[in-house]
């Protein structure tokens, strides 16, 4: 009995030491905290978190001025990931800031657009091309779907369109294919 217990404890101790050593030896030098937080945020730049973009929000989290549950586009997974990074208890997404929605892109009805460039100024990622008095259009790959251009358009010609699944980006439903 004593033999077994002592052997096992000794082994456990050895493994523990080994792991502890490995943890110290191979620890990755981290980026500054703000960068790490910013890397988790979805970069939609929508401002729903009450900060003028993801980076400012990341700075606010890092300095403890904001909670981690204010970013709706990041969804609950985003909150959980932040909690894990910061090693704190996770919280539920604060609905006051909005609810997560499927990803969309802005599409301009070019026939209606008057070329006022207000949307160009509002867009946080410069996804519009156009200049004053010519019709404006959105580069779909650049648009983050932040909705900020919607309210500024005087003629309401911007529409948010959901991104449809295609054969190319289809993700099989594993629950259905698992044969359980």
């Amino acid at each position: 009995m004593f033999d077994a217990t002592s052997t096992l404890s000794l082994l456990a101790l050895l493994f523990g030491l080994g792991l502890g050593y490995a943890a110290i030896r191979y620890r990755v030098e981290g980026n500054p905290l703000v960068d790490q937080i910013d890397a988790i945020l979805p970069q939609t730049q929508c401002g729903q978190c009450d900060f003028p973009g993801c980076r400012p929000y990341a700075e606010a989290i890092a300095s403890g001025e904001a909670e981690i549950n204010q970013c709706p586009p990041g969804g609950q997974e985003g909150v959980d990931a932040l909690a894990e990074l910061l090693n704190i208890e996770t919280m539920t997404l604060n609905e006051e800031h909005g609810e997560p929605e499927p990803k969309r892109v802005a599409v301009v009805d070019e026939d209606v657009c008057i070329g006022c460039t207000l949307c160009i100024q509002a867009c946080p990622v410069d996804a519009f091309v156009g200049s004053s008095k010519v019709m404006t259009t959105v580069i779909a790959q650049e648009c983050t779907g932040c909705d900020l251009c919607i309210p500024v358009c005087p003629v309401d010609c911007i529409e948010m369109v959901e991104i449809k699944p295609t054969v190319r980006n289809y993700i099989p439903d594993i629950a259905e294919l698992a044969h359980v």
Binding site: D38, Q43, T44, Q45, C54, V125, A127, Q141, E142, T144
Partner: peptide, 8 residues
Amino acid sequence: TDKARSRF
């Protein structure tokens, strides 16, 4: 997101 970040 990387692109959006750098554009922002």
